[in-house]
Write a protein that binds this DNA or RNA. Structure first.
Length: 476
RNA sequence: GCGGAGAUAGCAAAGACGUUAUGCAGUGGUCUGCAAAACCACCAACCGGAGUUCAAAUCUCCGUCUCCGCUCCA
């Protein structure tokens, strides 16, 4: 049984979907007003892993992630760069798609865009208006939070405490009450606009998320996720809109990921301390970035330092080596030997590891513990390959299968299957190893060392283990 | 002010009354012609104070500190 932490109840709950075996999931995607940064990546990777795990456990996941392509900051960017909002949106949307793919994030089932749903947003607001939850005021339309008694339940705020005077928006004279939020905004000069019953304007507080969620997944969904900073007001406002209209719970499980901090400070555009993914990937592999993110539980904050990402890269390399080694042996021809004790023990270890892995992930997706399981298994596997008298293909296939599962859940090293060039190299290296072994048996250290040194110069590292010689292509 | 999360070894990070977390680093060892790797062992920890309990990193209370949200940041 999978347990998830629900922001709404602030506790762990058993995960049960509306329709057995199917997960309806809406993830609040980015506003495309800039390049994808590490913060986006953390959220995206964290939920990507959760999604992959649910799929691993047999769920069919319908995963909707929107792109918000009309919003204040986008207008600002467009104005500054003397371009249209659409042009800005197109550029950064392409950037996001490129970076998401570089990070090996699984494609969403659908990526709806706000701008393509304006008419439905208008209809949606009209329905709220008809039910008396929204009011028009001087060309703007606001949600009347006092009408929605449960307002504040997600962020655990009392209405009295929300929006104290002082902020810009609280003073907005068009509002009846300071905490009311805009559903539709009257256009300002130079802004993009759409015609509406309330005059020309544009959508306000993410009605499109509610609308698109209902449109593509139904009125009640299993999971709605996003960064912790979206809890209030973004998701609070979504609940208000959806539940006011439909009179039933909008979302069964609210999942929120923790931030990435840089030097103990939140990474954000306003502080200017963000790292773009495209830049980070010039120095570190996508696998390292994913491991860096997965080594911390998704709800905990991560303090980003060069040291930590370096460590993640080292971990990635280490894991890759054992994964590759096992994959390499799994391609060998079966010698059909019988299982001896060390083989049976190894098989047992793999089974135990899988159980422990599932247990860890079932507990609110405890990826840290899952990694502990993986590290323990890699030790055993390393030992097995180096120390067993004969490597049994049954055992290797068992390890390889579990490693495949791990790779697919974490989305790392998925293209580990060797291409033909590696196979050719392998044949050559095996030949050289044999040659070197001859020199070694003659105690011709000069020649045997020369072969090893020359291979190293060519990027191939030999490793003499008690039972056999292993080789690998050195990471650049 | 209101609300949330947290403080665990040199660093990172799980755990939540009793039993080795784990990774990196450090120390010693096994293997080896040498090298590298791998493995084994060791090392070292629960912010401070009080309480509850046979037993407290874990529960309660009181401090101290950190981070975050509070109207368009993932």
């Amino acid at each position: 049984m999978i347990k998830v932490y629900n922001t709404l109840s602030r506790q762990l709950e058993e995960f049960e979907t509306i329709e057995p075996g199917v997960v309806r999931w809406y993830n609040c995607g980015p506003t495309v007003n800039g390049l994808m940064h590490l913060g986006h990546a953390r959220s995206a990777v964290a939920f990507d892993i959760i999604r992959r795990y649910l799929e691993y456990r047999g769920y069919k996941v319908r995963y909707i992630m929107n792109f918000t392509d009309i919003e204040d900051r986008m207008i600002e960017v467009a104005t500054n760069e003397k371009r249209s909002v659409l042009e800005v949106a197109e550029e950064y949307l392409r950037g996001f798609r490129r970076d998401m793919s570089a990070l090996n994030l699984k494609e969403a089932t659908i990526n709806p865009r706000a701008m393509l749903h304006i008419n439905q947003v208008i209809e949606f607001i009209q329905k709220l208006e008809k039910k008396n939850y929204a009011y028009e005021s001087n060309g703007d339309v606001y949600f009347d939070v006092k009408k929605f008694e449960e307002y504040g339940k997600l962020s655990n705020q009392k209405l009295d405490n929300i929006l104290q005077e002082g902020t810009e928006d609280a003073k907005n004279p068009n509002k009846r009450f300071a905490a009311d939020f805009a559903l539709w905004k009257k256009k300002k000069p130079g802004e993009p606009y759409w015609p509406s019953p309330w005059g020309e304007g544009r959508p306000g507080w993410h009605s499109e998320c509610v609308l698109m969620s209902s449109l593509y997944l139904g009125e009640v969904i299993d999971i709605h996720s996003g960064g912790q900073d979206l809890i209030f007001p973004h998701h609070e406002n979504e609940i208000a809109q959806a539940e006011a209209l439909n009179n039933k719970p909008f979302v069964n499980y609210w999942l929120h990921n923790g931030y990435i901090n840089i030097d103990k400070e939140k990474m954000s555009k306003s502080l200017g301390n963000f790292t773009n993914i495209i830049d980070l990937l010039k120095q570190y592999s996508a696998d390292a970035v994913r491991i860096f993110i997965a080594q911390t539980h998704y709800r905990s904050p991560i303090d980003f330092t060069e040291d930590i990402i370096d460590q993640a890269q080292a971990t990635a390399n280490r894991l890759f080596e054992i994964f590759l080694l096992v994959k390499w042996f799994s391609k060998k021809e079966d010698t059909d030997s019988s299982l001896v004790e060390i083989d049976n023990e190894m098989l047992k270890t793999v089974e135990q590891s899988r159980t422990a892995f599932v247990e860890a992930m079932n507990e609110d997706f405890n990826t840290s513990n899952a990694f502990a399981v993986i590290f323990n298994l890699t030790k055993e596997a390393n030992d097995y390959i180096r120390k067993s008298d004969e490597i049994n293909l049954k055992v290797i296939h068992s390890i390889d299968k579990f490693f495949d599962e791990i790779r697919s859940v974490f989305g790392i090293f998925e293209n580990i299957e060797e291409d033909d060039s590696t196979k050719t190299i392998g044949t050559l290296v095996d030949l050289l190893i044999e040659l070197r072994q001859n020199f070694r048996s003659e105690k011709n250290w000069e020649m045997s060392d020369k072969i090893r040194d020359d291979l190293k110069k060519a990027g191939i590292v030999l490793e003499d283990t008690p039972k056999r010689i292993l080789w690998k292509i050195e990471e650049k």
